[in-house]
Design a binder for these strands. Structure first.
Lengths: 170, 170
DNA sequence: GTTGAAAAATTCCGCCG
DNA sequence: CGGCGGAATTTTTCAAC
């Protein structure tokens, strides 16, 4: 039982390539995988239709755009049941780019981007701590991001001797 | 002093659009921003050259691909100085998609994707806990992701009355 | 920043195995 | 049906202004 969605090896290979470089042309992917460009097109349309592909994003260097601080916040709530309410308030804060309802020590896990420490203080003290239901927060500032990559979804038993290797970009 | 990189409002608007939908055609962005397609092309080339644009990613629904669990790990090291070594070992574990050197309670913050609880146990117990230098870990499983969006980089004083609004996709 | 034209990619559709 | 191939359309890309 597979949620009714059938994904074969070709689908996974296409996704795997595009997850690393979403700008690669369908014609080029087609050449790598020894199928026609039209096939890539049909497969991607299916993958978008069933919601496996959620979107296409640009990955940017936040530091170079003036957002020097990336921090994770562990948030304690007064009551776990306040989650929906608090999430809605967090959504209004543009610096919050991610929020998860989590198991473990904290009730909510959030990621924020700030320009500098003054900006972080403003976000924490004036915005987040003011949300009703939030008891306290713990802050983890990222000093270095050493890994940031897509999940490898092509399993070993799937890609036995695929002649795929990286080519030069564009 | 701005790191020597000059980014104007138009650059930010282009980035802002592409961060939400990296597949939008340059010609369409050009129409929205009332400039020519060539200008978008030149701006993007500059933004890629200076490293502000790091890449183009596909965003996928990991759950639908069989990876039901997304978890964050707080990792305690025996000594903070072991960071580089441990990071190198973490990089060998494909389930680890993100790792940060952080301030606060933990030394390293990592994000992992697993197929199910058995898979998570294997990753935690057989892979991560076996890395020399790691003292112990704390696991936060994401039960719901309620926010996941790009950072809004166009500041209010930048985009005063831009006639920009979302258009239908493709 | 713009224009315009060549090169390339996307997208669609009829056909085949 | 799933994949192929080709043709129409759109986009990218680049040089000259």
């Amino acid at each position: 039982m597979n949620k009714g969605i059938e994904i074969d090896r070709l689908d996974k290979q296409i996704l795997s390539i595009l997850m690393r470089n979403a700008k690669m042309a369908y014609t080029e992917i087609a050449k790598k995988l020894f199928v026609s460009g039209g096939t890539i097109h049909v497969r991607m349309k299916k993958l978008e239709d069933v919601g496996i592909v959620k979107g296409y994003n640009l990955s940017v260097d936040h530091g170079k755009l003036g957002y020097d601080i990336c921090a994770y916040l562990g948030i304690y709530l007064d009551k776990s049941s306040l989650y929906e309410e608090v999430a809605k308030e967090l959504e209004k804060i543009p610096e919050v780019v991610e929020a998860h309802y989590t198991t473990g020590l904290y009730n909510i896990f959030a990621r924020v981007f700030c320009k500098d420490t003054a900006h972080l203080k403003e976000v924490l003290h004036d915005k987040i701590q003011n949300i009703p239901g939030i008891q306290r927060t713990e802050t983890f500032i990222s000093l270095q991001e050493s890994i940031n990559r897509p999940l490898e979804i092509v399993s070993e038993d799937d890609d036995e001797e695929i002649g795929y290797h990286e080519a030069e970009e564009r």
